[in-house]
Design a protein around this nucleic acid. Structure first.
Lengths: 144, 144
DNA sequence: TAGCAATAGTTGCTATGGCAACTATCTATA
DNA sequence: TATAGATAGTTGCCATAGCAACTATTGCTA
């Protein structure tokens, strides 16, 4: 273990980069009047891909606390982008899915998201992407 | 630009990894009764390194919004780890520095931080660290 | 030098994040 | 089958994040 590993603030650069990305995304969302947050987008994206899932499943997919998911869903329900359906099998469970407006919102936002992802990865190669993914995965698995 | 660049949620893995790191750090802080948060630690670390700086300078060093810095400082002042000193040259400015208790807190927490950084970088090389740093720097500079 | 723009910092508001405590429901088992 | 434990989700609390609006001060310039 070399000095740079321990002297360098390990999470600081991650934090700074992530904040810059989220800020950039949010400003673009706002500039286009999309009326959603970046985390709300993440939820919408997952509901589009997985159709009909519970809060718990959504929490795992988004790496969010279930309480946070619960609150984001509440905001999206108020915006009429998501609807809740109580399960009949297990009355504790609530299934979530996009409303038609939610699906429209997904399709409206998606091209901008692709564009912003390209902007972030400019000047980087496919190999860089894989390296980063690999390293983040190792860090993730290192932590108990 | 290959498909993986645009199909893969670019910030999601960063976000998930960062949350895992912060959680792990916070649990260790709490388990040892250190009575600070991870972000408060970042502020203490910067005040230890830079001695006597303003809110604005601290905000730049920590990549935090000045409002957030202002609030974290308030919490640290209440804990008597940080003290404020109004500038005489420019009465808008407030200089911040660690109290003796703040310096003690730094020295108490520092070994644990080094340990946790090593845990995060386990199974990774110096080269991996540099790769990650390079890639994050490019992403950061890509974003307007 | 009067007044306006810029700067330093604070406060209010809303959203996300995590923990603890809570309700409601379901499952397992004595 | 009564009950204890597990599970799904919500709510309260506090911390961080960012924006807008605000006060106080300073610097610039007409």
């Amino acid at each position: 273990m070399h000095e740079s590993f321990v002297s360098n603030p390990s999470f600081f650069k991650l934090d700074a980069t992530l904040k810059k990305i989220k800020n950039y995304w949010q400003k673009n969302f706002d500039a286009r009047g999309l009326a959603i947050t970046v985390d709300q987008w993440l939820v919408i994206e997952n509901l589009y891909k997985h159709k009909r899932i519970t809060h718990n499943e959504l929490a795992k997919l988004t790496s969010k606390d279930i309480t946070t998911v619960s609150r984001i869903v509440e905001l999206l329900v108020r915006k009429e982008l998501v609807e809740r359906q109580g399960s009949t099998d297990d009355r504790r469970k609530v299934f979530l899915q996009l409303t038609p407006e939610g699906v429209s919102k997904y399709k409206e936002v998606r091209p901008l998201v692709l564009e912003m992802r390209e902007t972030g990865w400019k000047n980087l190669t496919e190999g860089d992407f894989q390296e980063m993914t690999r390293i983040l995965d190792v860090i993730y698995s290192n932590i108990p």
